[in-house]
Structures are given as C-alpha cells and as structure tokens.
Design a protein around this nucleic acid. Sequence first.
DNA 1: TTTTGAGTTGTTCGA
DNA 2: GTCGAACAACTCAAA
Length: 494
Amino acid sequence: MSQSTNNWTAPATSPVIWWIRRDLRLHDNQALHAALARGDGVLPCFIIDPRLMHGRHASPKRRAFLLAALGALDADLRARGSHLWVATGDPLAVLTRLREKIDARAIVAEADYSPYARRRDGQVAAALPLELVGGPTLRHPAEVRKADGTPYTVFTPFKRAWLSLPLPDRAMLLPAPAHIPTPAAPPGEPLPEEEAPHALAPFPPTEAEARRRLEAFCAGPIAAYADRRNQLDAAGTSRLSPYLRFGLISPRAAFVAAGDAARHPEARQGAEVWMSELIWREFYTAILYHFPRVLRHSFQAEYDGIQWKNEAQAFDAWCQGHTGYPVVDAAMRQLVATGWIHNRARMLVASFLVKDLLIDWRWGERFFMQHLLDGDPAANNGGWQWTAGVGTDAAPYFRIFNPTTQGRKFDPEGRFIRRWLPELAAVPDRYIHTPWEMPATVQAQAGCRIGQDYPPPMVDHAFARQRTLDAYAQARAQRKIKTTVRNRVLRINE
DNA sequence: TTTTGAGTTGTTCGA
DNA sequence: GTCGAACAACTCAAA
C-alpha cells in the first residue's frame, strides 16, 4: 500500500462500502473497481428504500426483478469470497450506522441522475464521504452541451455532438474481479421473499443473461435491426432494456459491442440505428437532469392547457386491453403479463390513449411505470411526452397513429395479436385487425362474437382523430392569445 | 445579429 | 394502386 493518509482520518486499514443502486453487476463496474482500488476490503451494500418501493410509480414487477437480480448478484459475490449486505430504510440513516459499525473510510457508488436520486445523494454526501463514479448513462448528462453551454433540447444535434466525443473501446471495459475481500459486518437482512413472484421467464434477472443477450444480439440480429426492429411479431430487438435499467450490463459494454458490430459492413447500418436508440436513452436522461419539471408538466408549457377527457372507464379499458382494437389490446396484455412491450407497441398504445381517448399522457406514463421492468423516469417520461406531442423535439401534433394501419403494417399476419388475444385465435387473417367487420357467420365460425367474446371498438378512430386535432388546436390558440396579450402589455409599458 | 436549414418512428386525401 | 402534398407554423442549432 503506497497510499498515504493523514493521521486524523480513519485508519488506512478501514474498508469501503460499495453502495449498489442501479449497477447490479461485477463486470465493468467503476464503483466496485474504485472501491477495490483502496485495497482494504469492500462491503457490497444494497439499501431497500421504502420511498422507492411504495411511490405512485412503484412496480411489483420491477421489485420482483430487482430482488431476484440481487439474489443472483449475491451468489456471484459469494463465488468471489464476498456477499451482499442488505438493509431496509432511509439510505442516509442506514449508511451512517453501517459506516460506524465497520469503521468504513468511504462510500463509493455509481451516480444516478433522477431528481430523487440527486437529492438523496446530496444529503448523503453532506454527511458522509460519498464518492460517485460512472453512471447509468455513458456520458454525464451535463457533458453534452451546445457551444453556448446550454443543454440541447433537440435530439439530432444532441446525437451529433454526443457522437463527436470519444467512444469507449473494449480495452476500457473493467473485468469482473476474481476475488473481493470483504470485512466482517453486522448481520444484514435477508432478501425479502416475494409472496406472489412475478413470472420473470422472458427476462431471467442475472448478469450472465444480460451479457449473453448483448453478445447474441450483436453477433446476429443487430445486422437486421434497422428493418426488423419494427415488427411486432419478430424478435428483432435486443430485449436488453430491463438489464440496462438495473445495470446488469453497463452502457459502456453496450456501446463497445455495438461499435464492434458496426465494423462489419453488413451490420453497420443496424448497429448505428441501435446505437441511436441508446443515445435516446442518454438524451432523455439529460433532459430530465436539466428540466426536472417535465416529471409534472409538458415541456411545451402551452400543452398543459389541453382539455383532456380523462374518463376513468375508458382508461380502465385501455389498461386491461379491452379497447376493441386488436393490436392495442395485445400490447397492453403483453405489458401487464410480462412487464415488457416492444418500442413500436409503446408508441402505438400511447398514441391510442392520448389521441384516440384524449386521456392525459401522465395517466399512461404512470401505468407504464407501474408495469415496465425497464421503467425509468427519464426514458418513460420522454417517450410519453414525445408521443403526446408535448415534449422536447416532439412528434408533430397531427401525427396520430391509426391502430388498424399500424397493425397491418407491423403485424401483417396477426401473429402478435393471436398470441396475446386467444379469443381472436381463429379469426381469419382478413379480419384480424378489424374483427368488428366480420359477418355474423364468420364470427360464429371463429368462435368470436363481437360484443361477447371480444369488444367492438370503443371509439371511432376517424372521429377521435378529429377531436384530438381540435383539442390541440384549441390549446395552441390559447397560447397565441396569451402571447398577443403579453406583447401588447409590453408595448404599452414601453 | 441575422439567416438558414432542419426537425425519429404518420395519416389522409386527391390526382 | 401509387404518389405527393397538406397537416401549421415554430423553434432550435449553427454558421
């Protein structure tokens, strides 16, 4: 040990607490690496924060994924002579006690950029020696700025600037440590047992699985990603989002793998499109970092004035997948059953809620957070504001998805629909996107009577589309009046 | 300061 | 059936 210490600080032999939050992995973990570099032992610690577990946006599915991933991490740690130490409570209180008990010199953690996380970390850092390294995005949200120092609010220039900065290469990826010396510690809590564990079969919550998926995706499907990613019935996407959400894989590892794939000419386009999706994740993290008000308000303030219908019954029908539009219902049932849906499906069901039912996008945002394994405040909020047409760089207000056209385009044979709506299994291809058009005899043959086995469409799309165009036009007109009045007042004051 | 070009993912209508 | 225009200005970013 060549490290020098002042004699008034804790003894040089004191260990370090690795505070785990969104970095449930041993590979390429900068916080773990920094903690080990101190050389005096590392206690891996996870704190179950009741405020995160019981908020309005909390999710039993995500909790199940998290707890199972922690169990797997504990097993990986035990194979390296360590173990996971768990406690429930306020992080500052838990860390203060733990630090005293084991005489820890420092607490090292990966940064986290949500408004809640920053407040929490600020309080901890004010009282304890907290060191933050790395983070759930590749670049710090404040790193990419315009020439005048202000943050970007349009994706494409953000992406250009983001890509102009150096990308990581494989040599930078930190290996998983072979051995993690761990100090004696007071007994932690056992990981809570789930009473009714969510079925995690489509997303086994282990670091090994995350690494396997990344490798498999970049070795094959990434080449066709540009086209196939939109197909609802094909496995053209990486399905890595829950793993990135909880840090079972590092963003660095994802960019390195995509960069390697991009070197093969036949995979270049797909790899670049996938990287672009990863950069969307970076973009929305930066937007929330710089503009935390988006969690409650439209980025474009005038659209807070939209007159939503907000009918509870209509909202319930959407949540349960009983809208009468097969592709919407299939996606909603997949979401509730598995905690994941396709990106295209997210846009499609979001467009339906906001623009066909005229329900406040925040209702949908909350429901997604309650069900998505990958639910992340920044990305989810950005996606909803984009679809609603009220956010940064938003979809034009007149871009309203037609649920029937989208179904025909992205699930042409209705495979996705039939998988999630067994009541439509025997409906002929011709009617799979418009079952309400089936003649009575066909309904009988298919064992699917509209109104009994499957609902008729809950709104007429053409009518709903016009209603939304009107509601948005009205919000814009209000804004115009306000601007004109303000300008007049200014002129008078001059 | 002014100007210029551009802006994830669609739909509908009429020629 | 295919194609281009309209949908509506507006704001952002950069030169």
